[in-house]
């Protein structure tokens, strides 16, 4: 093991924002801005090593210690419940997990509810707490199509602005939870790179507080 901190970033806008935050906290790695064909980016001065992975895979990389720390949305954490430390709420990438259906639709309680979602565990837990019998339809994208085509009664999905829902004559029935990005760490890495990870957490925490983005 070398003394680098391996950081898994989620591909996409959230990851870019997260990197900017880390850069501001003093963990810059200029190379990452002109990636070319490279997959891994190192900075030998600040001893950090970045790599981009699929957002839903960040928690796997961290849990299995391929990355020491990472940035991941609460939705992924709730869905896969990885055995990791959730050190900080970064307050970026804010959105909500919500239930939506066709406008004005009504669903009798004595019928099994058909739920289409990318997040079967979150949906299952939510309805189990209500004692509602549901049928889960696991989809991998274009969830909004499901109620329109009659594939499902409702959907459980991430809602940012609600514009897509509105454009398709859908509406939010209920919010399940507010989502934001979390700074997470592998448990074993935390034991053996304690100082480095604590320092990184502290710096990020100060930045987030300054920005007043944490609720």
């Amino acid at each position: 093991m070398d003394n680098y901190i391996n950081i898994a970033l989620p591909k996409g806008r959230l990851g870019e924002n997260a990197y900017n935050l880390l850069e501001e906290a003093g963990y810059a790695c200029p190379e990452i801005k002109n990636p070319g064909r490279k997959l891994i980016f190192e900075n030998s001065e600040t001893r950090v090593r970045y790599f981009w992975v699929k957002p839903s895979d960040v928690s796997i990389y961290v849990e299995k210690q391929a990355a020491d720390v990472g940035i991941v949305g609460l939705d992924i954490l709730l869905e896969s419940k990885p055995d990791i430390y959730e050190l900080l709420n970064l307050g970026i990438g804010k959105c909500r997990m919500a239930i939506a259906s066709k406008k004005g639709a009504h669903f009798p309680l004595d019928k099994t509810l058909r739920v289409a979602t990318k997040f079967p565990n979150i949906a299952k837990n939510y309805y189990a707490n209500l004692g509602r019998d549901i049928d889960i339809i696991k989809l991998n994208g274009s969830i909004e199509l499901a109620p329109i085509l009659g594939l499902s009664d409702v959907i459980v999905d991430i809602v940012e602005t609600g514009k897509t829902l509105y454009a398709n004559n859908l509406e939010v029935v209920e919010d399940i939870v507010t989502i934001s990005a979390r700074f997470v760490a592998n448990k074993s890495s935390f034991k053996f790179k304690t100082k480095e990870i604590q320092k990184m957490t502290e710096k990020l925490s100060l930045l987030c507080d300054a920005k007043g983005e944490v609720q």
């Binding site: 093991m1 849990e63 299995k64 210690q65 055995d83 592998n186 448990k187 074993s188 034991k191 053996f192």
Partner: peptide, 9 residues
């Protein structure tokens, strides 16, 4: 208990 290099306890 943890050992360095092993991902979990």
């Amino acid at each position: 208990g943890y050992i360095e290099g092993a991902a979990s306890s």
